[in-house]
Design a protein around this nucleic acid. Sequence first.
DNA 1: ATCTGGCCCTGAGTGC
DNA 2: TGCACTCAGGGCCAGA
Length: 278
Amino acid sequence: MRRGLEACLTGARLVRVRLTRADLRFPFPDGFAQRLEGKQILRLERRAKFLLAPLDSGETWVTHLGMTGRFSVSDGAAAYRPGDFYYAKPPDPKHTHVELETAGGIVLRYNDVRRFGYMDLMPSAEVARHRWFAALGPEPLGPDFTPAYLAKALAGRSQPIKPALLDQRIVAGLGNIYVCEALFGASIAPSRAAGDVALPALRALTKTIKAVLEASIAAGGSTLRDYAGTDGAAGAYQHTFMVYGREDGPCKRRRCTGMIKRAVQAGRSSFFCPVCQG
DNA sequence: ATCTGGCCCTGAGTGC
DNA sequence: TGCACTCAGGGCCAGA
């Protein structure tokens, strides 16, 4: 999502911002539209699951997409083509909550069916100290996410490894799909106590986490229902899921005869192969 | 301190 | 066709 926005919004100046309601997950900050209008977007960055757009006003526009938040960019030419398999389901206009127009005539829309997403504005110099960011763990694709780091972060924890990896304070930015897929790749049962996973398995795990994320980004993400790139394109990574959403399906590992199981942990579904991840 | 379950919200899918 | 029920890329909060 960040890459799609970066391509057309870096350096763009916002000339018009319109809200169709006063809140998403919580209210927009005071003067939200006015604080964006007339401002230039300097860069598009990401930290964990947050999109960050530093502005020339000294504030940073922060967006979390929640479960169903999506941005779409219309430059007038790249319109959605109904029926084309390449495209995700188009966003329902009744859930388009924010519309922004740039000086160059690009229209950016934020659509969010469930409104678990949210936006805020904060001084750029204070982003790192804000409560959303201060306690975040390292980026899984960054240099600080190592087996040694993970061993230290998980030491002594009795919590199962699956919910531990979803904890953004341990590692930032992993979601349910990619944790399930990475645990499968590393042959670790989601129910294993986090503190009991030995270093060789953590080495495999850090490797599969990075590999799964890189492969998914390269494939344009995973489209289950709502996700689409900024151009409306569906992701393709869902076609390569080994376990996620495959309950009762055969394990795809060569010569494995196991069946994928689903178990609920900390309120989220975990998918795994009881044979490979025993 | 750590951990789980309930909850926020809408829509899709399933079974009766 | 309708209704009841479950589930969904996340994360905050209360309470055990």
